[in-house]
Nucleic acid binder design. Structure first.
Length: 690
DNA sequence: CTAGGGTTAG
């Protein structure tokens, strides 16, 4: 038995105290730097509107300067004063707005120009197409395409590439992509820009394989690698998770001297993080001669998904370099707070976000909804959700999942109806959230209703969703239905599906379906230790020792040895790690008392991954009034639920609502039964592969 | 006066 600090990044007690105070001071120092980081006083450097009338050429140049500094009103004023406005001046206005993301203004100026009967040229068309893309006005885009044809500029290089880009960006994989390919085929002289536009378009739609194919095709055609195509294809590697190909591009980038190009470097960091090669990402960042904000953000968000505590350390390092965080940075940091359930720090971050004026940023608000829900304050989530001027699909989903995890299935269902009537179509994640919410609240029929509703929204269930549905049926004891659904689904069941079914078999002591399942698992030669362990326990519970032994032999055959389920307990500042059966530990009595209590009170019979820290006690679900004294004895401040590899939620003790007590006799018998099953689980969970 | 590139959320 070792006395160690836990290494789980999600454990609150893993945050060294020094890190905690460093974080607080870094937030404070970021606040202090706000004044100095305000916009530079560029107004002095930019010419003010002049009283004597400048020539058309001078005016156009001045307009460009105003746009470059975001002084749209100045540009417009100057433009309105011009006596003769030629196509160049009009185009300068349109492109000025379009390049500053003022797409609607760009299109309004274009409409004005057409109203005055000024014929557009290739420059105008390119800028207008850019604005159409930015404003996502696809019908307008088609009209401009038609205009380009009538003006005879549609086969000019810049227009062709702009058309490629807008068609790639429109209508998803359907018509837009098809039209873009047709245009691409028609381009006689395909330049690096045309190729890059196609590659980036495929990447945008998440089709990494086609992007890589296009890239290879480009090289075959003798078009040289550019920093643009380089960063696009690196993103494609990140999408398909190909570290090997990514490294080849990395080598090529170095050969061409692009490794100092920041977009190339930053996409390389992202690629290494997404391909789970964190050490290479760290190494690369360390060797970079220059970093920008995106470099820091990319690394922080990469670590957030894999190593939350290190992401916070990087935030401190970033602030020590006087780099100011933006909304991307904050989004990752809020996600870190959710992963670690560090509500206090999360609230400080929230404060910093509001003070910096990022309160209206949708992704950031979504992350905050998720954070507060996972930290146990679903009321706060709701307040943020209701206060949003604009909500997107993720906002609704985050709120629904938050409600579902807190047991408010009805609220989640109400939100679903509201969302649909506000004109947003649900996707797979929405249905997953609803099925989980119904499953945990025992609302089987409602859950099934959503399963059948999916077809109306053209959402195709994947393996994981079937897993949810089978879990929904299985938990409520409808094992035959669960098995039938598994047979009907258009996939070979994977580990998550088998897990849901076998878990239900064990929960309800149904060995006959477990045995059916066994034959299929063996036929499939599934290389998954957990499945065999669950299976063997079903046989053990049934007293079928022949089958038990056979399953265990198969388990050994898979070669996948699960590490023993080491867990840890921290009581009053002392952390001990342990495995079940570790009899010599001085606090083993307390450890077992806690585990028995937890397992005895679980509503579900899934393996639990408990940890107790000085603030958080995490277990699966279900608690009773009798638990309160024990929580106090253990100095527990929060109660949490750890599942699917993440902390799902943590409740402060005072907010814990207790289930209705049932009368004594029933309850004792029920508890006895639960404990019996629970101890089997304890063995499975803690010993892993024996 | 015109086209292509890097980081974010469920």
């Amino acid at each position: 038995m070792m006395m160690v600090r836990p290494t789980n990044p999600r454990c609150v007690s893993c945050l060294p105290t020094t890190l905690g105070s460093a974080l607080t001071s870094s937030i404070i120092s970021m606040e202090a730097h706000r004044g100095s980081s305000a916009l530079p006083s560029f107004t002095a450097a930019v010419p003010q509107p002049q009283t004597p009338k400048p020539s058309a050429v001078t005016s156009t140049k001045l307009m460009k300067a105003y746009f470059a500094h975001g002084l749209f009103a100045h540009a417009r004023e100057l433009f309105d004063k011009m006596s003769h406005r030629d196509v160049v001046a009009w185009t300068a206005m349109i492109s000025g707005y379009a390049s500053s993301s003022q797409h609607h203004d760009a299109l309004l100026v274009f409409r004005e120009m057409m109203g005055e009967g000024v014929p557009p040229n290739a420059y105008t068309i390119s800028s207008v197409l850019k604005a159409c893309r930015g404003a996502e006005l696809w019908p307008a885009m088609a009209a401009v395409h038609g205009l380009a044809v009538r003006c005879g500029v549609d086969s000019q290089a810049y227009v062709e590439n702009a058309l490629l880009d807008v068609y790639m960006a429109s209508h998803g994989e359907g018509e837009g992509m098809h039209d873009a390919c047709a245009i691409f085929k028609g381009i006689v002289k395909k330049t690096a820009v045309s190729w890059t536009t196609m590659i980036a378009g495929y990447v945008h739609h998440g089709d990494g394989h086609t992007a890589v194919q296009a890239f290879q095709h480009m090289l075959q055609e003798g078009v040289e690698l550019s920093p643009f195509s380089c960063s696009a294809v690196i993103r494609a590697c990140a999408l398909i998770g190909s570290l090997t190909f990514g490294k080849q591009i990395h080598t090529a980038a170095v050969k061409f001297g692009y490794q100092t190009n920041l977009p190339v470097s930053n996409s390389l960091i992202d690629m290494y993080c997404r391909c789970m090669s964190l050490s290479e990402a760290r190494q690369y960042v360390r060797e970079m001669p220059k970093r920008d904000l995106i470099t820091w953000n990319t690394m922080i968000s990469g670590l957030e998904r894999l190593n939350s505590t290190e992401a916070l350390e990087l935030l401190i390092e970033m602030s020590s370099h006087n780099v100011q965080p933006n909304c991307f940075t904050f989004t990752s940091i809020v996600a870190v707070c959710a992963n670690l359930a560090i509500l206090n720090f999360g609230q400080q971050v929230h404060g910093a976000i509001v003070r910096r004026g990022y309160g209206g940023n949708i992704p950031l608000a979504n992350a905050l909804i998720d954070m507060y829900a996972k930290c146990g304050n679903v009321v706060k989530s709701c307040r943020i959700f209701n206060g949003m001027d604009q909500k997107d699909l993720v906002s609704w989903t985050s709120m629904m999942i938050g409600y579902g995890n807190h047991g408010f299935a009805e609220e989640a269902m109400r939100l679903f109806d509201e969302m649909v009537s506000s004109g947003i179509s649900p996707d797979l994640v929405v249905f997953m959230g609803l099925l989980n919410a119904c499953s945990h609240a025992g609302l089987v029929n409602e859950g099934l209703k959503y399963l059948n509703l999916m077809v109306d929204y053209n959402v195709t269930p994947n393996q994981e969703l079937y897993g949810c549905a089978i879990d929904l049926l299985g938990r409520s004891g409808r094992l035959n239905d669960a098995y039938e659904l598994m047979e009907r689904m258009p996939f070979e069941p994977d580990r998550s599906v088998w897990g849901a079914l076998l878990g239900a078999c064990r929960m309800h002591g149904n060995s006959s379906i477990g045995k059916f399942a066994a034959q299929r698992i063996m036929d499939q030669k599934l290389e998954c230790a957990e499945t065999y362990i669950m299976l063997s326990n079903i046989f053990a519970a049934d007293g079928d020792w022949v089958e038990f032994a056979r399953t265990r032999r198969l388990l050994k055959g898979t070669g996948s040895r699960k590490e023993a389920g080491r867990s840890w307990i921290e009581v009053r500042g002392v952390v001990s790690s342990f495995v079940a059966g570790d009899e010599h530990h001085p606090q083993m009595g307390l450890v077992y008392e806690m585990l028995c209590f937890m397992l005895g009170n679980m509503k579900t019979k899934e393996p639990v991954y408990p940890f107790i820290s000085y603030k958080t006690f995490v277990f699966h679900s279900g608690y009773t009034a009798s638990s309160i004294p024990l929580f106090h004895k253990l100095n527990v401040w929060h109660i949490g639920v750890f599942a699917h590899g993440k902390l799902q939620l943590a409740l402060p003790m005072e907010e814990v609502k207790l289930p209705q007590e049932r009368n004594g006799e029933d309850r004792r018998e029920e508890k006895r039964k639960e404990r019996e099953v629970a101890f089997q689980d304890l063995t499975v969970w803690s010993k892993g592969a024996v």
